[in-house]
Simulated scan of single mutants.
Amino acid sequence: MLSALEVFTTVVVGVMVGVEFSVAFVMNPIFSALPSDCGQLARSHGGRMLGAVMPFWYITSLVLVVVWAIAQWHHGAALVVTAGALLALSVLISVLLLVPINNRSKAWTPENRPADWQQQMDRWDRLHYVRVAVIIAAFALLAAALV
């Protein structure tokens, strides 16, 4: 049963990492290359769509890692606990830094966006790179814990 939990948790976190990596290094660069109205509208739509799903995915990932750490506590869970701490950090980064920007930007249209919308998107991107690095590290630790 523990093996199934370990594999399931690693897959859930790994797919989340893949989505966030894709946003950072594939989708947002594509959106940024579009004319400003199109790129901004695409980012707003992405913010609404992923903004509805990602909170549950992050919390589910963290809960699964906590359950794994508890289940493996007496057999050495340092890697899993560290991965859990990194996922908790990613949730804090999201809630405190990224979500406020996302909540503003998902309602923007070319008619109502603020003058500094591009600077806000650039800040979101920089913070998102940090979050992606944190969750990649967590995923690597979970993968290492499997072996």
Rank of each mutant, 00 (worst) to 15 (best):
residue 63 V to G: 11
residue 103 N to V: 03
residue 67 V to P: 04
residue 127 L to S: 08
residue 72 Q to T: 12
residue 101 I to F: 09
residue 96 L to I: 03
residue 8 F to C: 12
residue 7 V to R: 12
residue 59 I to R: 14
residue 43 R to M: 13
residue 112 N to L: 08
residue 95 V to F: 05
residue 116 D to K: 04
residue 112 N to C: 05
residue 139 F to C: 06
residue 14 G to N: 08
residue 96 L to G: 08
residue 91 V to F: 12
residue 137 A to I: 03
residue 94 S to I: 09
residue 40 Q to Y: 12
residue 52 A to F: 11
residue 5 L to N: 11
residue 38 C to M: 14
residue 124 W to N: 04
residue 49 M to C: 03
residue 146 L to H: 05
residue 18 G to S: 01
residue 136 I to G: 01
residue 126 R to V: 15
residue 119 Q to R: 15
residue 122 D to E: 14
residue 119 Q to C: 04
residue 114 P to Y: 04
residue 42 A to Q: 08
residue 125 D to G: 11
residue 127 L to G: 10
residue 83 A to S: 07
residue 14 G to H: 06
residue 99 V to F: 00
residue 38 C to D: 14
residue 112 N to F: 08
residue 10 T to L: 13
residue 63 V to E: 13
residue 121 M to Q: 15
residue 92 L to F: 09
residue 34 L to V: 05
residue 20 E to D: 12
residue 93 I to K: 06
residue 58 Y to M: 11
residue 142 L to A: 07
residue 16 M to Y: 06
residue 7 V to F: 11
residue 146 L to C: 14
residue 32 S to P: 02
residue 134 V to W: 02
residue 39 G to P: 08
residue 96 L to W: 10
residue 82 T to G: 08
residue 71 A to S: 12
residue 100 P to Y: 04
residue 35 P to E: 15
residue 147 V to N: 12
residue 69 A to G: 03
residue 73 W to C: 01
residue 140 A to N: 02
residue 125 D to K: 14
residue 142 L to Q: 00
residue 68 W to I: 02
residue 55 P to F: 04
residue 8 F to W: 14
residue 37 D to L: 01
residue 88 A to I: 08
residue 99 V to I: 14
residue 140 A to H: 00
residue 121 M to R: 11
residue 121 M to V: 11
residue 21 F to P: 00
residue 141 L to G: 03
residue 103 N to H: 13
residue 118 Q to I: 14
residue 50 L to C: 10
residue 30 I to S: 07
residue 19 V to A: 05
residue 48 R to N: 10
residue 24 A to C: 07
residue 112 N to Y: 05
residue 57 W to Q: 10
residue 84 G to M: 03
residue 69 A to I: 03
residue 62 L to P: 06
residue 32 S to F: 12
residue 123 R to W: 04
residue 114 P to W: 00
residue 15 V to K: 04
residue 132 V to N: 02
residue 47 G to F: 04
residue 68 W to N: 06
residue 105 S to E: 01
residue 89 L to D: 09
residue 80 V to C: 02
residue 77 A to R: 01
residue 138 A to P: 06
residue 51 G to R: 09
residue 67 V to M: 09
residue 58 Y to V: 01
residue 108 W to I: 00
residue 21 F to S: 10
residue 65 V to Q: 01
residue 117 W to H: 00
residue 129 Y to V: 15
